[in-house]
């Protein structure tokens, strides 16, 4: 008889467009799996209790806290991390705006911040600054004071809206 509960779980998923098969410990969270097993160290573990947002990645098209989802739950999932979003040039404009506006200092929050920002930008339109701030309210940055980040996102929203109209 097979064990009903597994302490190691087989998962089959797609990460950054590439197929991945893995066997993960039952209690391992997504961010440790991505960082330690797949070497995708772009997103970071910082608080591991769901508050800081440094581990934010895309799972099945939405932003999730990598520390609040188990790797075992990724079976069949489509995961995108900062590495894949960079390689695919999906958020190139946002990254360039962050650099131009110096919307990052130490860079530790930045991969999570970019995933959060992209989720807002994907809704389209040019959000109010307050709405941008509200959307980032779960992503902690200790360096910038947030204003540069808000500026960069606002800039990209305008750029994209301009392109859509044109």
């Amino acid at each position: 008889m097979t064990r009903i509960f597994d302490d190691k779980v087989d998962i089959d998923l797609t990460v950054n467009g590439e197929p991945v098969e893995a066997r993960v410990p039952a209690g391992q969270h997504v961010i440790d799996f991505l960082r330690q097993d797949l070497g995708l160290t772009g997103a970071h573990a910082s608080c591991e209790h769901g508050v800081c947002g440094a581990c934010t990645v895309q799972v099945d098209g939405t932003s999730v806290r990598g520390c609040l989802m188990l790797a075992a739950q990724l079976d069949g999932a489509d995961v995108w991390t900062i590495e894949g979003l960079s390689d695919s040039e999906t958020i190139r404009d946002l990254q360039e705006a962050f650099i131009a506006r110096n919307a990052l200092q130490c860079g530790f929050c930045t991969p999570g911040m970019l995933v959060a920002a992209e989720e807002l930008l994907a809704l389209g339109g040019v959000p109010e600054r307050a709405a941008i701030r509200e959307h980032l309210s779960g992503n902690y940055c200790r360096c910038t004071g947030y204003e540069a980040i808000v500026d960069a996102i606002e800039t990209v929203a305008r750029q994209r809206a301009g392109k859509v109209q044109a």
């Binding site: 960082r35 995708l40 160290t41 772009g42 997103a43 970071h44 573990a45 991390t81 900062i82 590495e83 960079s86 990254q95 962050f98 650099i99 110096n102 990052l104 860079g107 530790f108 930045t110 991969p111 970019l114």
Partner: peptide, 15 residues
């Protein structure tokens, strides 16, 4: 160094 940080290519100790 900003370019690599926005691409998740930073190298912090835990990496």
């Amino acid at each position: 160094n900003a370019g690599r940080l926005v691409e998740g290519r930073g190298r912090y100790v835990d990496d």
